[in-house]
Nucleic acid binder design. Structure first.
Lengths: 340, 340
DNA sequence: ATGAAAGCGCTAACAT
DNA sequence: ATGTTAGCGCTTTCAT
């Protein structure tokens, strides 16, 4: 039950394997008639050139490796969808690994795939990696000549192509929208202690307030641990008791929901006298009541963009231009947790 | 900047490549001393055997292909997590493709990977494939000797290993739980017209009622189109007006949310005088208010199980036993949309 | 204990 | 227009 090879075809027609090879590649060296009969035979018998032989010979695999911190995260699932689509469009396969936010897993995965399995990496670094600020595994693979394109969670000091979200401006826009619709006391809730995107959003929040000459109250900047998601409400409650808050921007949907519930329990009506905007335009936002206004990060587009950049890099190995980083703008998706 | 090969190592020590190969594989034929120096040198210089050469020689790639209908679906993302974990544990890579519920994409993907890229398939069939009931692409690849393990969405007539959820019993248990907590008029809302799991759940629902000698009212079995998810409430409303319904079992979270909202709008309090149980224990269930009681399908375990079965199959090519299908039991996760 | 050689399936430079 | 050959990086049988 072994696969058909060019050797088999050659034997069947009593020609040499190179004739078969050339015929299948439609070489001008081969006569029309033999090309035709060989191609037909190949098609009929469902011949497929052996992937590993091809890769070995051509020194390229037409596959890329993607390392994603967490596939249960809707945003990353969207990114992956974009990657898969774009890769397939260019005839690339994608080997997918989940780092589970673990530095070790990230390193192991890179090790495992740096043996000729793939032509390049797409990578969003694990939270632990960002925390430890250790990127030698990345610089080493770049030195080996394996291109990397980072997306979303990016190591500033590693010199490679990148695709990021404009978190800073996304937050400014969120503040703007709240201010425009009459909010005066905007709190900021962040669950992303170690991630740069969390900091960018916080800076954007502050910048947004500054731009509008609104009071900056440090008590309204709240950091909570993601691990505590079951107790968000309990953790947030005191902040709402001790401060006058009429609106909130959160870095994730869960805490937006929690904040909304607290506000409601305290007698507020969302959005009439309390507004909320959440980063991460996921599924939750569409199913809460009221539905959440969110800052959308366009995960799928980010995935497509990153994949395209990587494939371009792979296929123009020669031209070693400087690294570029593309910025994906955010959109404010207005739903029912903010006023018009 | 080319990778180090055994040839390079051989040259460096002035020995033959076969000596190097044997040394690296710790062969008894090679003297301790040379083994040591070669292994050390290899480690120091970060030698990694070329993946494609190895695969070509050994006729196996240590990679599996996974075809998933939709990665934005939380359940499938969970399955994938399980697959990736289990595969990595056994040293396998995983090439992931999304069929987007399209028959054509499914066929193309299988074509693309049936060239020696992978040692076997993990597959949940696309909705379109289930609809068309056309599985020749699957039987053909099985005939070629490439093993397939199907998970969740499974083709009954294709002879291969399978992992499925016990949807039938899951639904019976849901009915049971509602009945036990005092519900008398249980409706069933299904969005899965073409999927067998939807039918299984419906049969389980009916069986559950029968078992408890509860009245079966065909008007309480409601089919809606998934595409209409933005209008679930509008579509469901008439059913609630025209029938006396005190509880509902849904095949997905979105329609559970919709049903709950309608019930609340009609003056009911969930769970006091209206209960809801949803299939698919996803993110939404944990964030609605009240939180949804669900039938959990253990996606991650399903993924692990399927991967393990496939790898076992791959590594015991000789023993051609009959196909087995494993059934993963469901659990009722009680939250706040049902009474105690 | 070490090496030579064939071969995995394919391409491509170089004959003929 | 077709064939021969070397080689991609590795393993393995069979010398030595």
């Amino acid at each position: 039950m072994n696969r058909l090879t060019i050797k088999d075809i050659a034997a069947h027609f009593n020609v040499s394997i190179s004739t078969v090879s050339k015929a299948l590649n439609d070489s001008y060296e081969i006569s029309k008639s033999t090309k035709l009969k060989i191609q037909e035979y190949a098609k009929e018998h469902n011949y497929k050139p052996n992937f590993n032989a091809l890769s070995l010979k051509k020194r390229q695999t037409k596959t890329i490796g993607v390392i994603i911190p967490n596939m249960l995260n809707y945003f990353f699932a969207q990114v992956f969808k974009g990657v898969e689509k774009e890769a397939n469009k260019s005839g690339y396969k994608v080997i997918t690994c989940i780092s589970n936010e673990s530095f070790d897993k990230e390193v192991e995965t890179i090790e495992m795939l740096s043996n000729g399995s793939i032509d390049g990496f797409l990578l969003s670094i694990a939270e632990q990696t960002e925390e430890q600020n250790n990127f030698v595994h990345l610089t080493k693979t770049l030195e080996q000549g394996l291109p990397i394109v980072m997306f979303d969670r990016v190591a500033k000091d590693v010199d490679c192509d990148k695709v990021i979200t404009n978190d800073f401006e996304g937050a400014i826009n969120a503040v703007d929208h709240l201010a425009k619709t009459g909010c005066k006391h905007i709190a900021f809730i962040s669950t992303q202690s170690h991630l740069k995107s969390g900091k960018e959003r916080e800076l954007g929040y502050l910048e947004g307030l500054k731009k509008r000459n609104m009071e900056i109250n440090p008590n309204l900047v709240i950091h909570i641990f993601e691990e505590d998601y079951k107790q968000y409400e309990r953790i947030l409650l005191p902040y709402f008791e001790e401060n006058h808050i009429d609106s909130v921007i959160t870095t994730d949907e869960s805490s937006a929901i929690a904040a909304m519930k607290i506000a409601q329990r305290k007698g507020h009506t969302v959005p009439d006298d309390f507004s909320v905007i959440s980063f991460s335009n996921g599924i939750i936002a569409r199913h809460s009541s009221p539905k959440l206004t969110t800052v959308s990060q366009h995960g799928e587009i980010m995935g497509e963009t990153a994949a395209k950049m990587l494939i371009d890099k792979i296929e123009n190995k020669n031209t070693s231009e400087a690294s570029v980083t593309k910025v994906i703008q955010t959109d404010l998706v207005e739903r029912n947790s903010t006023r018009i």
